[in-house]
Design a protein around this nucleic acid. Structure first.
Lengths: 221, 221
DNA sequence: CATAAACGGATAGTGCGACTATCCAAAGCT
DNA sequence: AGCTTTGGATAGTCGCACTATCCGTTTATG
């Protein structure tokens, strides 16, 4: 398969494929002549993965490269690969302004308490940690303490999900190779977030429709 | 308070504040002279909200404006305000390429079945719907059916969260005005996503550390 | 009260990320 | 043989989110 067909099959424009090749998001095709290459099913897959990460999960191209380099390396431990995936989706979530210091302090304390009570052991420089603290701090400073009160509930929910994801990924019926497990973990981490997010929105829309539009005369505000 | 102090208090550069004023993300200050304005606590709050939506939740400035316009309007029903919030975080999640048609069809059917079995009633053009279908389709086409198998579990989890969020927001101890409820719902929808996402990452990091690094000689891959 | 600093508002410019366009010489098809 | 397509290199575009500069007023300060 040459580049034109790869483009047709994948739905990605030829210039974009060339761009991805330049950026090493896509391995070069097998050269059949000094200037003629052929691509295979592997490239189609990889292209699908790249578009999904970029379009659906909103991961910057540079971070996609990081993640893929991790996947392609057969020496990088899975835990570090996960770290790259986490950084890929956390990079953009950094506050430039400053919530009041008091709110930040309270949030930091609360997060530490949460980690303690859950027994979650995370590196102090975990990418998600500062984002979590900043988010809580902002909520507090916007008088949304009742949302902050749901923190334990949220933690409960995600903890269960994490356990189930781990189980789903490691105990696949088909005996999976380490490579395949790594790929599953990374896809599950990043695209799983999109999945959860969209499901949440659908659940909200449905609930919202019931609560704030449907009942004609059910004492709403 | 004039613009320099607003900048100092909020941590947002003066030119950026001017930009937000131009884009109507921030209401104009009260004019004390033809060319002299004064800003208040309300502006500080709004600025915090804007930065949180932009930096933490990654919402594009244009969508932030949509959401804020909804909040500021006292005629737009809450359900429609929520719709704007949903569009704000879904706008960027649209696939440009094409997964195989078979996968998309299967995904569509599965999502319809899910909505049916849950009794979720959503508009057929709900912003999150196509993203969900595309995400599932991509997972399938990447041989991650085991992740797709978690769909019901995910749905369970988010359904519970939605119920609790609704309760937390509508039954605040302090008697909240409709405006305050609307603000809470929108913040809860958008920043809540950031909260859930970061908690999930922390839970994963902790689990991953246990499973793939800690035990020295516990039969890992 | 004079004068330098800060202000609000308008207009233009910058930097970055993600592509997209153009060229070219060397295949490839017909 | 001749038109098309290819891989690869280089340069250009586009949108977004800011920044920078100017300018004619205030405002603050010595």
């Amino acid at each position: 398969m040459r580049i034109a067909e790869l483009s047709r099959v994948s739905g990605v424009p030829v210039p974009t494929i060339k761009y991805y090749l330049r950026e090493n998001l896509l391995p070069p095709g097998e050269l059949t002549s000094p200037n003629q290459a052929s691509y295979g099913e592997l490239h189609v897959r990889r292209l699908r993965l790249v578009r999904a990460l970029v379009d659906l999960a909103g991961v910057p191209v540079a971070q996609v490269k990081e993640v893929l380099d991790g996947l392609d390396s057969d020496t990088l431990p899975l835990h570090d690969q996960i770290g790259r995936a986490h950084r890929a989706i956390t990079a953009r979530r950094q506050l430039a302004s400053n919530p009041p210091e008091a709110a930040t302090d309270a949030a930091t304390a609360q997060v530490e308490a949460l980690l303690e009570s859950r027994g979650w052991k995370v590196a102090p420089d975990a990418p998600a940690l500062t984002t979590l603290i900043e988010t809580i701090a902002v909520m507090r400073s916007l008088d949304q303490d009742h949302l902050v009160g749901l923190l334990e509930t949220y933690a409960d929910a995600v903890e269960k999900l994490t356990t189930l994801e781990l189980a789903a990924v490691t105990s696949r019926p088909d005996r999976a190779t380490p490579d395949q497990i790594a790929e599953s973990v990374i896809i599950g981490t990043i695209l799983g977030e999109t999945l959860i997010s969209t499901l949440r929105l659908l659940s909200q829309e449905s609930t919202s429709a019931h609560r704030w539009t449907e009942p004609p005369g059910t004492g709403q505000t």
